[in-house]
């Protein structure tokens, strides 16, 4: 933390006085932060979470770049995309694409279906809860991760903000054509950044998560797009097995 401040100070000096960088820092510039957690940045997360919770029906997509760390520390990047039709509190259809597979996850509030179009296999689980409850259940019982699950947890008790050890405003930046406020957080072994649309619709447009549990620090980058006035029909949340589809068993996670 102290080192970060020094680096920031140095940066400010270099920017402010490139020709006289050898002089002593001017007094009063960049006062030391009283706390590592900038409350305005925490408030920005609260505002974003509250706004997300007000969205009833929307389309959201993510283009994700992730990394795998090989045995010797070399990293490989991969990409995946996901599109989601959402109707709170309990309807969702997610289409997930990655190099090796295309999968769909459909939830109508009563039944969650996992479908793989390539093989026409589907599995169903009866489950009545909100999308947030679904996220936990899928994760814990089946080891299935929902894309962008943070979107459904921010603004709820499932996303506590008091665990954040460092929070800072990193200025403004563009994501696509959208002016965004850029924030950076540190929490346990995770460093993360979020770009939130500036203005009255604080939507996350980009999320970067750095995993510090591995010294190679694998990082994921999610570029997020929104449509708050989607045109999908209610029928998208109902899974009807296509002709020739086969129902297969889904096995709960085994604890080793």
């Amino acid at each position: 933390m102290v080192r970060q401040i020094r680096v920031l100070n140095l940066l400010a000096i270099l920017l402010a006085a490139p020709s006289t960088y050898a002089q002593t820092p001017p007094a009063g510039a960049a006062p030391a932060a009283a706390s590592a957690v900038d409350q305005a940045s925490i408030q920005a997360l609260k505002d974003m979470g509250a706004f997300l919770q007000t969205l009833k029906r929307f389309w959201v997509s993510t283009e994700l770049t992730g990394e795998r760390v090989l045995a010797d520390g070399q990293k490989l990047q991969h990409t995946a995309t996901a599109n989601m039709d959402v109707e709170r509190p309990n309807k969702l259809r997610a289409l997930m694409h990655s190099a090796r597979s295309e999968r769909e996850l459909i939830y109508d509030g009563k039944t969650v279906t996992l479908y793989t179009p390539a093989q026409k296999y589907y599995s169903t689980v009866e489950f009545v809860d909100t999308i947030g409850g679904l996220i936990n259940r899928l994760e814990e019982r089946f080891g299935v991760e929902l894309p962008l699950s943070d979107l459904f947890l921010w603004g709820t008790p499932a996303a506590p903000l008091d665990k954040i050890e460092s929070a800072m405003n990193a200025g403004q930046d563009f994501v696509g054509d959208d002016l965004c406020d850029h924030y950076a957080f540190r929490q346990g072994k995770i460093d993360w950044q979020v770009w939130i649309t500036t203005g009255s619709k604080p939507l996350p447009r980009k999320i970067v998560i750095t995993n510090r549990a591995d010294e190679a620090r694998p990082q994921s980058v999610s570029m997020i797009s929104w449509n708050l006035k989607p045109t999908f029909k209610d029928s998208v949340f109902k899974f009807t097995p296509p002709k020739g589809a086969t129902k297969i068993e889904i096995v709960p996670l085994k604890t080793k």
């Binding site: 992730g66 795998r68 760390v69 045995a71 943070d150 346990g188 072994k189 549990a213």
Partner: peptide, 23 residues
């Protein structure tokens, strides 16, 4: 060698396993 993966990036900040990543 590309299949000898020791860890990966994570996609969500609010899942418990991400806070205490157990490689």
């Amino acid at each position: 060698r590309t299949n000898n993966v020791r860890s990966t990036s994570v996609n969500n900040v609010n899942v418990e396993r991400n806070v205490n990543v157990d490689v």
